[in-house]
Design a binder for these strands. Structure first.
Lengths: 352, 352
DNA sequence: CTGAAAGCGCTTACAG
DNA sequence: CTGAAAGCGCTTACAG
């Protein structure tokens, strides 16, 4: 009631809520209290703005008293820089992503950039996500998911810088940071070949995942160079899918592997559990199992998965730097950065 | 070069970048092409805006041709509704959070609300995060972390609705959604007591975590009702910390537990691995181990942790609904919602 | 260094 | 239903 309501027609729900919401103070409020112009206030909050020490002192005192913070939304409207980046990421249940996301937040935060987060299951439509992204005028996009050509083109047309994380496209005008999945897998498989393994199962992740495809390709190509038998199975990156594939294989009794190459650590863990706990087999003596990613769970004593660790910190930092470079200088040439993974010999496979 | 640059003084880096950035079309561009007023365009994009079918058709055609999307930033400036909610979350490595975050995104997304994500390690300052939050004029905050009274007061003063997730405060004017950690722990411990366990280790998480404190309190209070010996140890929710605590305990040979009550599943898994792989002990025969959370890893065959599952989906949905209710109606009374967890008997403890 | 003024792209009473 | 106009809270040439 103590509020001034000059306009007593304000009665809609929206207005009610607007009124009862405390009004935040603006640069005008500060300028009035400090006895300076509104422009002066604005300059005080702009790094490198030219203001005298005296003016700055007055403004800072007033701002503090009023609890003033510049409105980043209004600023973004006029500067066309929101300092917000969209992070689009599938499968948050993928054990690798929390680390990626956490690292992204850390590095972007250091640069004063914020994350508008979009995650989604396979069901949802990336087009919808992109619509949201345009509306929020983000400065750029980091995408850890697969886009269609059309979606990529839309980003170009709108001039929104785009960097893919672990998702590669042949088109050289597309920016990406990627782990060398194919080469990493080759190293794993070569070690298994040296260890005289003869019957291989290669267990892929989801069909639509380019990462899984690259890993599988690395495995198959390397195996084709050796004199071994190979069975390809297709899962979905999950622990459950790996267990089920093992179960099916043994029930059909069609194949007796002595090595299993999994598309990620989670599936490797699923295989190890199925082999040991359902079929009473020795890992790695009877069957060697290898994964990929280097998630923390892979190091747990019950598994100690032999795997390739992605250099997540370096990759994320590279992605962020690439994106910022392209936000600040849209003419930067496109670039693909490929990082080597590091093979870690655990106890799920005998490697010398 | 084909661009019109009426003002040839534009030469700063910022301006360069602005120019080379494709200009997105605005409601004015659409109105010009459609031959209607800009207000008409605006109304077409407002749900329930009153426009004739004819006008709407013209506007939609023009908008489509221009690839127009309303600028949510400009809209937010005038409506004072950004449709952005800040999600503030510690310890993304905590295995429970990916699920929470993914669920948050799903439910908020369904309501047309976006997430500005803030994660941080223990080092960083929540005050800094809150400064960012104010600047971005978020509609509300979901905090899965501990605030100081002063920080909570700041939210009140600015009129920013705030809902805590798994973080409780005595003050009844604070909104929160929480799992009943104390009662869940009581149930776990009672089962262990029924199972005739006599020597208990209670392994806490980080000192600053209210959740860990509640769980530990539930355990200790229940144990005090029985005739058993109790050793309290303090870790940090991590697998490593649990293994180290076990190691220290056995090296000091001060205590021989037959039951270990862990602050979360990850620590329970660490205990199981340490007991089995370092000390060659049988779990659950010699030592029973229980956790808390119900993360997917707890169900892995190597562990099958007896635990209490948090009803994450319900909790997140409750938090989102509470927040939206308070955004739309700031006068809503404060509320605390407490959800029961569900005890799942795994094979890490013998429960009947 | 400083202030007055224009303008970012919208929404929304208001008057027709 | 429609359009002209004011205004959200800023930044930034411009002129002093």
């Amino acid at each position: 009631m103590e509020k001034k309501t000059p306009d007593n027609k304000r009665k809609t729900v929206l207005t009610t809520s607007r009124n009862s919401r405390k009004k935040r103070s603006t640069s005008y409020d500060v300028s009035r209290m400090a006895g300076v112009s509104q422009s002066a206030v604005s300059r005080c909050f702009k790094p490198g703005g030219s203001v005298s020490a005296k003016t700055r002192a007055k403004v800072e005192a007033a701002a503090k008293k009023l609890g003033y913070q510049p409105n980043a939304i209004a600023r973004g409207l006029i500067t066309r820089r929101s300092n917000i980046v969209a992070v689009i990421i599938t499968e948050l249940t993928n054990l690798n992503y929390p680390e990626v996301l956490s690292q992204l937040n850390k590095i972007l935060g250091q640069k004063g950039i914020h994350i508008l987060l979009f995650t989604f299951g396979s069901k949802e439509n990336i087009d919808n996500v992109l619509d949201q992204v345009w509306q929020y005028q983000v400065d750029g996009i980091i995408a850890a998911t697969q886009f269609t050509d059309k979606q990529i083109k839309a980003c170009f047309e709108r001039g929104t810088p785009l960097v893919f994380y672990n998702s590669v496209y042949a088109d050289s005008s597309i920016n990406s940071v990627c782990c060398d999945h194919e080469e990493g897998e080759r190293q794993l498989v070569e070690s298994l070949l040296k260890d005289k393994r003869k019957s291989f199962v290669v267990m892929s992740g989801p069909k639509e995942s380019a990462v899984s495809t690259a890993r599988t390709r690395g495995a198959i190509n390397t195996l084709n160079e050796g004199d071994v038998s190979v069975l390809q199975l297709s899962g979905d990156y999950s622990y459950q899918s790996a267990r089920e594939l093992i179960r099916e294989m043994f029930e059909n009794k069609t194949f007796e592997p002595d090595a299993i190459v999994c598309a990620n650590d989670t599936m490797a863990i699923g295989c190890i559990d199925a082999l040991r706990h359902e079929y009473n087999m020795k890992v790695p003596e009877q069957v060697a199992v290898v994964g990929f990613d280097g998630v923390s769970q892979a190091r747990w004593a019950s598994y100690e998965v032999t795997t390739v660790v992605q250099p997540v910190e370096h990759m994320v930092e590279a992605a962020v730097n690439m994106l910022i470079e392209r936000i600040e200088n849209p003419e930067s040439p496109a670039e693909k950065r490929l990082f080597a993974g590091k093979l870690i010999a655990g106890r799920s496979a005998l490697l010398n």
